[in-house]
Nucleic acid binder design. Structure first.
Lengths: 95, 95
DNA sequence: CCTTTACTTTCCATTATGGAAACTAAAGAC
DNA sequence: GTCTTTAGTTTCCATAATGGAAAGTAAAGG
């Protein structure tokens, strides 16, 4: 298991959800994540940018169905940080 | 189990720890909580006040060993809110 | 009365977060 | 080519959160 390490960047509600969603899939579309979190474009865009700048996720802009769409996926670092954060949460709340 | 309900007040790192500590004991001294969290008097005092105003904890100022000490304990509401928040976290991170 | 202990409150600065609106780039329509 | 739509991005703005430091308070003891 990842080493427990509380990560403030990941702890924020919206970003915790983003990481949790991405942890279970190879990648997920921006609009799908947005719908899951029920946030506006601008809010999601800003969180995505923050996670990207931390090296936790990568963006892949691809064209599908005549439209450019952005796919998000956790990087290896991002997954480790996320799992480490979850481990830290478990330590705090006791399993 | 408590109904999953994300609670922003409890989510903040320091307050999550305070609730987690109090959840396992009947009460805990202010100075002990402070040492566990490694925060200053003022910071802990402010978080304690916020939790108290939410009705999540109660303070009991008692004199022991010639000194007045403050004991903190979760109220029933506080415990429900805490357990509900932990349940929400589990739903987010997937158990 | 002065000091110490155990917090509380105030003051201050920084960061976080979100909503709304303006802005940009790419793909089709015409 | 130009206009429109889609999919985000960035900017502007206001509010809330959080912490450190320092001043303030209340009670007990010397």
């Amino acid at each position: 298991m990842a080493k427990a390490c509380f990560d403030p960047l990941i702890h924020a509600h919206n970003r915790l959800q983003i990481c949790a969603l991405l942890e279970s899939v190879a990648e997920m579309e921006f609009s799908v994540v947005k719908a899951q979190l029920s946030v506006s474009d601008s809010v999601l865009s800003k969180h995505v940018k923050a996670l990207e700048q931390a090296g936790y996720i990568t963006l892949s802009k691809r064209t599908s169905l005549a439209r450019q769409r952005t796919w998000l996926s956790l990087t290896r670092d991002g997954e480790l940080a996320y799992l480490g954060h979850v481990a830290a949460l478990r330590e705090i709340v006791g399993l």
